[in-house]
């Protein structure tokens, strides 16, 4: 089943775009940590980075691969709990724990990806819910995973890499940023590779792909593995850097939907889509709260605000699907094209 057949492909302007990205990266590394307040880092940048990465992972599977998953949060949870337990029980360093956590999420992703070899479309989408519910159940039921803590909520270990202490907001931000930038580059390479082409081929016409010799089964399982690994690392960032606690509660079905919404709004089968979508998803509730407290001066209570947020979010999803199925990424693409045209003329 094809999710988005009409992904716009901009003509390659590698140098210009690469320059822009480098500038953006320089700002993110050098300027942001200096000027951003702890509030901005903790309430906006950290969840933004974690969710961007989760969206990136899901976009690989769903946007590029056409395999819809409703269980992203489960793999975030696997990543977070695996990293925690590897550190706790084997005493491994944080970087190694992250690699092992990614591997664990990949392995579990492959297990829950197995049905994709036989199921398609909605049957597959529904079967990914099994991952969501099973993982959440297992992590809640077996207290071993949370080191037998009575509440099921454990504090994340201090963030240290080698002798570097990253526990302050700036440190956590740089930790998350490093992971996100590194993995984004990897995804960029994957998408541009022949394996990435295979992934799109399987999405666009699975039967044709099979008949002409694209290794469909392997392509799907690899997609599940890589996607789950990336989402697992997103879970580590979420728990270690953002929440600073490891707990199953936050990795629920709503989180899975949130990640899916991120790539719908941002743009399926694009890398920047995950970032744009995550930015909107993170910033929008804060804006809504600000606006309402400004306009109604605290007359609207938090519960009502949550409901309004839900309604508006739902409407935004529907609106994007109807009016701009290629998401914010396409809007940005048009805007930059227009800007370029203006610059050229002027």
């Amino acid at each position: 089943m094809s999710l988005s057949a009409d992904v716009p492909v901009a003509p390659p302007r590698v140098n210009l775009r690469a320059l822009g990205l480098l500038a953006l990266l320089a700002v993110a590394v050098l300027v942001v940590p200096v000027i951003a307040s702890p509030y901005v880092i903790e309430a906006i940048l950290l969840p933004f980075l974690a969710l961007s990465l989760a969206g990136l992972g899901l976009n690989l599977l769903t946007g590029y691969g056409g395999q819809v998953s409703l269980g992203s949060a489960a793999f975030m949870a696997v990543g977070a709990f695996a990293a925690y337990n590897f550190q706790l029980r084997l005493g491994v360093s944080l970087p190694l724990a992250i690699v092992l956590a990614a591997a664990t999420a990949a392995a579990i992703g492959v297990v829950f990806g197995l049905p994709s070899l036989r199921l398609r479309g909605f049957y597959l989408a529904v079967s990914t819910l099994a991952a969501q519910f099973f993982v959440q159940w297992a992590l809640t039921k077996f207290s071993w995973f949370s080191n037998d803590s009575a509440s099921g909520v454990v504090a994340a270990p201090r963030l240290t890499v080698a002798s570097l202490d990253l526990d302050a907001p700036q440190g956590r931000y740089l930790f998350a940023l490093t992971l996100v930038v590194g993995i984004t580059f990897l995804v960029h390479r994957i998408v541009g590779s022949r394996a990435g082409v295979n992934l799109i081929a399987v999405r666009d016409d699975e039967t044709a792909a099979k008949v002409i010799g694209v290794p469909v089964l392997r392509t799907k399982l690899v997609a599940f593995a890589i996607s789950s690994a990336i989402i697992g690392v997103a879970g580590v960032i979420w728990a270690y850097a953002y929440l600073r606690t490891v707990e199953p509660a936050g990795f629920n079905l709503d989180r899975s939907f949130q990640v899916l919404f991120i790539i719908i709004i941002g743009g399926l089968a694009t890398i920047r889509g995950a970032f744009l979508g995550a930015a909107l998803i993170v910033v929008f509730p804060l804006l809504l709260a600000r606006t309402s407290s400004f306009a109604f001066e605290g007359l609207v209570d938090a519960g009502v605000l949550k409901l309004v947020e839900r309604v508006v979010l739902g409407l935004v999803i529907i609106l994007f699907l109807i009016a701009e199925p290629n998401g914010l990424s396409a809007i940005l693409g048009r805007a930059t094209a227009r800007l370029r045209a203006v610059l050229r003329r002027g």
Binding site: S2, A5, D6, I200, R203, D204, D205, A208
Partner: peptide
């Protein structure tokens, strides 16, 4: 049964 999301060369 071409892959519409790919270029002719990639197809």
């Amino acid at each position: 049964a071409l892959f519409p999301g790919l270029t002719a060369a990639q197809n």
